[in-house]
Simulated scan of single mutants.
Amino acid sequence: MEFCPKCGTVMFPKGECFECQCGYQKKITKKSLSDYEVSEKISTRENVIVTGDDVKTLPTTRAVCPKCKNKEAFWWLQQTRRADESETRFLRCSQCGYTWREYD
């Protein structure tokens, strides 16, 4: 996987670049392709990747938004660091849409 040096989230290939949701792009080179090994081929119908702002289907929790002080947020976990470290918990305010992180 390729991680964004600006925000730390996973970047996905798009055209000839790896692209992050924050807007950062990195050109795909032969060296970066040789770092990856395809272990299993699956059809694109089986892939589910949430990259948009439609988070209404995510679970909610009680959390105070640092921006608007709303007390409910959507949450999800994402592996943003090495595999031997815990996931990063992301929260998005259900009212204003502000997104922040929590680490364990």
Rank of each mutant, 00 (worst) to 15 (best):
F18C: 05
K31Y: 04
C20M: 11
S39E: 12
Q25M: 14
V38I: 14
L33P: 03
C17I: 11
D35N: 11
Y36M: 04
K31F: 05
D35I: 01
S34F: 00
S43Y: 01
Y36F: 10
K14H: 03
Q25E: 15
C17R: 04
F18E: 07
E37G: 04
S34C: 03
V38E: 08
S39R: 09
K14P: 04
K30S: 09
I42T: 10
K41Y: 05
S39K: 10
C17L: 03
Y36C: 02
G23N: 14
P13Y: 00
K14A: 05
K41L: 11
K14V: 12
S32N: 07
E37A: 06
Y24S: 13
I42R: 03
P13M: 00
S43E: 12
C17H: 07
D35R: 08
S32V: 04
K41S: 09
I28R: 07
K41R: 08
P13F: 00
E40Q: 11
K30Q: 09
T29W: 01
S32I: 08
E16V: 05
K31A: 09
Q25G: 09
S39L: 11
K30P: 08
D35P: 01
I28E: 12
K27C: 07
I28T: 13
Q21A: 14
L33I: 05
K27E: 15
K41V: 15
L33C: 03
K27N: 12
F18P: 10
K30V: 06
Y24I: 15
E37V: 14
I42Q: 04
K30L: 05
Q21K: 13
G15V: 07
Q21L: 14
G15M: 01
C20H: 09
K27H: 10
G15F: 00
G15P: 09
E16K: 06
C20V: 13
D35A: 03
S34Y: 02
G15E: 09
V38Y: 00
E19R: 10
